[in-house]
Design a protein around this nucleic acid. Structure first.
Lengths: 247, 247
DNA sequence: GCAAAAGTGTTACAAGTACACCCATGG
DNA sequence: CCATGGGTGTACTTGTAACACTTTTGC
């Protein structure tokens, strides 16, 4: 039967169907010290007590999944609302297998978010235990979160190829070396610097040079010019990874 | 608060939160007579009685959204289970704005499906009124289905660029002219035939030539060689549309 | 001076674009 | 014999890959 068609006129009685819980799960990525990190929280109760899990929570009655995702991220990281609205947020897909949560029927909308490597304000939120963990070091996540996380990683990697997404991993001003580092850590491959440079600068609106003194990127080496993200959000032609396979 | 964390120990009482209805909505595309068509159903009841809408329905207590989508499509088209499992099915995204359905809180997981232009078995299903409508001719759809449909169209168009998806629009055996027609009708642009041909044949596993007599594609012209879909599902390098902008 | 990082140049090759042209069939 | 769609060849342009080389800093 099709409850939205004319054949089930009582299909809209809120008590006529089994209730679903709707949650959001967040895959929050950061590039720190040349390694890709993910924000994880430690569960305090059964099931999976003591396990690492993706941050997330219930969608409230009067908010959309996107709003819930932003709210949860704010609570988990302690970032203020302005910072949250600025960063890249993207719906991944929805996980709805009947037994993905042993307690009840939970349908979860997964999101990916990209953070620049800010001074770590964790603990400012109300999360019991939360940490940016290097991607790939925690293999057993609660529920189906391991699958969600690997789906998110694959998606982010693919999007770097044809979008300007990489700047979302960077602070407001960055060097081309840092930008290249984002690609290299997410993809796990080395890139040719001269070619990367040309490619980025040849794409109009990807990055804009910032006037002013060049920036020191730590210790040795020639000071690099500073750039900020440009208005473009698509890359044409795409910046394909060496042996890349999309999707 | 975060009901999946340790701070809300009663967060799992099924009655403790407002119930959500979870539905699936389907954007079912076909290429017929050189035009892109979408499967729409006419609503029989309020709200939006008499309006065209995407087919869809509630997710049942023991099925995933993917299973619900396949079941609904079978009911709507009358196709048998084998045909349904064979065709391309893809989760698009989830629409969760609180007021997208005026009656109650409905979270809908949207799917896109691609059908080859089969002999139309519509009415074999139990849909009141369903039809393959040329894409773009119906502008006012019920609920937020207009938005879902345009999102689906954009996604399908983008996926043609880097996946072997186009063969899903074709019958088991097809000509390169028909395959090119799929690209041209979905993208709305003309393609150079010699280049298209070379590109497709140069991608290993995209199509495989079928031995046997060449096929007449209607009336005039040289008979074309027949092909079937190959084992590949990604296109490397991608087949970019003339002035394509992804996403 | 040496290592490290930024930045420039060059060359060889692969891929995409835009055509002109021939082939087989139906009317 | 001509319109129509299938199929081949080719020159031109663009993009990519690889790598040599110079510049500017810290130590």
């Amino acid at each position: 039967m099709n409850e939205r068609g004319p054949r089930v006129p009582d299909g809209y009685d809120p008590g006529a169907f089994e209730p679903f819980a709707v949650t959001v799960d967040l895959a929050v990525f950061t590039v720190r010290q040349g390694a890709l990190h993910v924000l994880l929280v430690e569960r305090g109760e059964e099931p999976y007590a003591g396990w690492w899990a993706l941050p997330g929570g219930f969608v409230r009655p009067r908010e959309s999944a996107e709003e819930a995702a932003r709210r949860e991220l704010a609570e988990e990281t302690g970032l203020d609302a302005d910072a949250i609205t600025a960063l890249h947020f993207e719906q991944l897909r929805t996980y709805s297998e009947p037994d993905r949560d042993p307690r009840m029927r939970v349908v979860s909308v997964a999101f990916a978010a990209l953070l620049p490597a800010l001074p770590e304000p964790l603990g400012g939120g109300d999360a019991a235990r939360a940490a940016h963990v290097p991607y790939g070091t925690v293999h057993d996540l609660a529920f189906d979160h391991g699958r969600i996380l690997s789906d998110a990683h694959r998606r982010i990697g693919a999007k770097l190829e044809y979008s300007c997404l990489a700047t979302s991993f960077c602070p407001p001003e960055f060097t081309l070396g840092e930008l290249q580092g984002v690609y290299e850590t997410v993809w796990g491959t080395a890139l040719d610097r001269p070619n990367f440079r040309r490619k980025v600068l040849a794409t109009p609106g990807f990055v804009e040079q910032v006037d002013g003194p060049p920036r020191r990127s730590g210790g040795r080496g020639k000071p690099a010019a500073r750039y900020r993200a440009g208005p473009a959000n698509a890359l044409h032609p795409p910046l394909l990874r060496p042996e890349g396979r999309p999707e």
